[in-house]
Computed example of a mutant assay.
Amino acid sequence: MRIARWRDGADIGEGFVIGNRVVPFPDGLTVAHVLSQGLPAVAGLAARVEGEPGTALADVELLAPVVPAAIRDFVAFEEHVEGISASVDGRGEVVPEWYQAPTFYFTNPHTVLGPGQSVTPPETERLDFELEVAVVLGAVEGSDGVNLAPEEAAGHIFGYTIMNDWSARDLQAREMKVRLGPAKGKDFGTALGPWIVTADEMAEYLDAEGFLEVRAEARINGELVGDDLVSNMGWPFPELVAYASRNARVVPGDVLGSGTVGNGGCLGELWGRRGALTPPPLQPGDVVSFTVEGLGELSGTVGEPAPAPPVHAARPRPRRRHRDDAGA
């Protein structure tokens, strides 16, 4: 089943995509409500509205299919790490720590974009995209979402969606030299969509080890620039969910990104491998489109950058330890 949110005039709808129409959930339920009920409840809800006429999909504007409780973005593709490392230091090495456990960062749930929406980047000379698949978590009866084993974590995967982690590589590079981040190089926009495909619908694509074996492609203005199999991840999604829950809690509505696929899943990887800005950084008006087998297509347009107030450099301080210390 496909689950979506959409705008129809001044109204926001939330429900199922059935064929070429959108049909609201019964009883005024929202995606958040359905995630809190968990995947087993979805079939019954779909049966209740199957005969409803709904609205033509072409007549509504799709929104991000979930309002995330939190967004964790992993870096699970070795090939991507190699390419980005090459863009930083020219060596393309993967640090030993990458292999020891999954790594993720938190990004901004308040700047989420939907299908077809324009991203408003900061002032940057190296705007980039990142082609990812994300899981959306739902409730599991009797589970508190803490310290899950991978087998338990699999049950929390409600469904999958496509994710674009828009990135300003020059801003990201500066802040990560401080051994923290990424932050402002990333948090201006994360696109999700076009809908959530429930986990049962995607089960046919899982290989014997639990990896999601689907093809993912990235295009700029219609030209293919990257493609990969999502099964090239270093860890399957249940292990990412389990790691996120380690000494912590995951909840319905959490979104966990796979990280960028390899083989041109972002421009930064290609720049590192080629030693040049080829293809060039994204510019206003560029259309970035992702296609993922079984999940659909997610597109977005680069808008004009938004100027922001100036940033002040750190002030030199005398490092006083007490208020009455004159210092040096």
Rank of each mutant, 00 (worst) to 15 (best):
F77A: 05
V88L: 15
D59Q: 10
A86F: 02
L63G: 08
Y105I: 10
E82G: 00
G114K: 06
S85Y: 00
P96I: 04
D59V: 06
F104T: 15
A56E: 13
L63M: 14
L63D: 09
A86V: 09
E79H: 05
P65W: 00
F104K: 15
E61T: 13
I84G: 10
V94T: 06
V75Q: 06
E93V: 03
E50N: 08
V112F: 03
T55H: 07
F74H: 12
G54M: 04
W98Q: 14
P96G: 04
R72K: 15
F104H: 15
A69Y: 11
P96T: 04
A69E: 09
V75L: 08
P68Q: 07
S87N: 15
Y105M: 14
E93T: 10
A64H: 15
A56P: 12
A58E: 10
Y99A: 00
G54Q: 08
P68R: 10
V81F: 05
I84H: 12
G90Y: 00
V75G: 03
Y105F: 13
A58H: 08
Q100K: 10
I84T: 15
P102I: 09
S85M: 01
V60I: 05
D89H: 05
Q100T: 08
T103K: 01
A58G: 14
T111V: 07
A76C: 05
E93A: 04
A58Q: 07
Q100V: 03
G54C: 09
P96Y: 01
V66L: 05
N108I: 05
R72E: 11
R91C: 04
V67H: 09
P109N: 00
I84F: 12
T103P: 00
E79N: 08
H110C: 03
V67G: 07
G90P: 02
F77I: 12
Y99R: 03
P115H: 05
S87D: 12
V67I: 11
E93D: 10
A56I: 06
Q100R: 11
P109C: 01
A76K: 05
A56F: 08
H110A: 07
F74Q: 04
E61I: 15
T111H: 10
I84N: 14
A58F: 08
G51T: 12
A69G: 12
E82K: 01
F104Y: 15
V60Q: 04
P65D: 00
D59H: 06
A101E: 12
T103N: 01
F74G: 06
V60H: 02
A70K: 11
D73K: 10
V60N: 01
G116W: 04
G83V: 07
G116P: 04
R91E: 13
T111D: 07
A86M: 08
Y105V: 14
E50A: 14
